[in-house]
């Protein structure tokens, strides 16, 4: 189902460092709603604030201590390598896994499993490649590694509180931050917490997603995990708002008239 390029060689840290953080960026979407701007480019490479969108995410991941990133690509997959290279200029290693056909968010995550380390207890940050958040990934990681009732957290979700949740699926949680359910868009949302598109998975959890078919984590994987057994869930909540990192060389000025 996939082609990995350039040839993937497992870096030395995978066999020597325990707990090393990896990341996956899901970057396979067609960008239909952004046409015609995405007719010739993946939306993830459109310039935002002066640099390709994914550069913001890669810079943020590097700052959070991520050493290895897997880009799950599909639409215009050939466009990524010339722009982002091997990731060295961001201070991390970057490899690309191309889906031969769109597999959805869950399918894309499962599809890159072979490009991740074999450290079952490792943390894997998963970002939707079209969402930029100003939240503190490092703090979410620290929270992810905090055991709950003696149990290791399996999945952490970044939730964001919005003023009007009607356009979104909602994620109600209990007082301990455990996910109760995932709801579809509704005129009467049960909470103003919505999925912000940044997850942290324990490495071994990725292998539980069925391989080789279309899977949506939002509609299938997450709802399929029963609330009665979800003691491994954690959530990280922040208010809305984001910052963009911008190139220093560009001039910034107020309106001229």
């Amino acid at each position: 189902m996939s082609t990995t390029y350039p040839a993937y060689e497992r870096p030395a840290w995978e066999t020597s460092a325990v707990g090393q953080v990896e990341a996956v960026i899901i970057s396979g979407g067609f960008g239909t709603r952004m046409l015609p701007l995405t007719e010739r480019h993946p939306k993830h490479l459109l310039t935002v604030g002066g640099v390709p969108f994914l550069e913001h995410q890669l810079t943020k991941l590097a700052a959070a201590g991520v050493a290895h990133v897997v880009l799950a690509t599909s639409y215009h997959a050939e466009a990524f390598v010339p722009v982002l290279g091997d990731g060295s200029r961001f201070g991390l290693s970057l490899v690309y896994v191309r889906e031969s056909e769109p597999l959805g968010t869950g399918g894309a995550i499962r599809n890159v499993a072979d490009a991740l380390s074999n450290n079952d207890d490792g943390a894997v940050i998963i970002l939707n490649g079209d969402v930029l958040s100003g939240h503190d990934v490092t703090a979410q990681l620290a929270d992810f590694e905090r055991p709950r009732n003696g149990r290791q957290v399996g999945v952490s979700l970044h939730l964001v509180e919005v003023g009007d949740a009607r356009p979104f699926g909602c994620v109600p949680t209990d007082t301990d931050g455990r996910v109760l359910e995932f709801t579809e868009k509704s005129d009467n949302p049960v909470t103003n917490q919505v999925n912000a598109g940044c997850y942290i998975f324990r490495r071994r959890v990725i292998d539980t997603i069925q391989a080789g078919r279309v899977v949506s984590v939002e509609r299938e994987t997450f709802p399929g995990w029963s609330p009665t057994t979800n003691s491994w869930w954690a959530t990280w909540r922040t208010p809305t708002g984001a910052t963009l990192a911008l190139p220093r060389r560009w001039s910034r000025h107020r309106p001229t008239s």
Binding site: V83, F90, L246, R252
Partner: peptide, 28 residues
Amino acid sequence: MTGRAPTTAITIEDPRCLIHPDADNQGT
């Protein structure tokens, strides 16, 4: 489509403009 490492922060609501050094602005 080529980029450079972002280095400074700005909020998305910031009304200031961004002008690339290789852009040619003769208007408003």
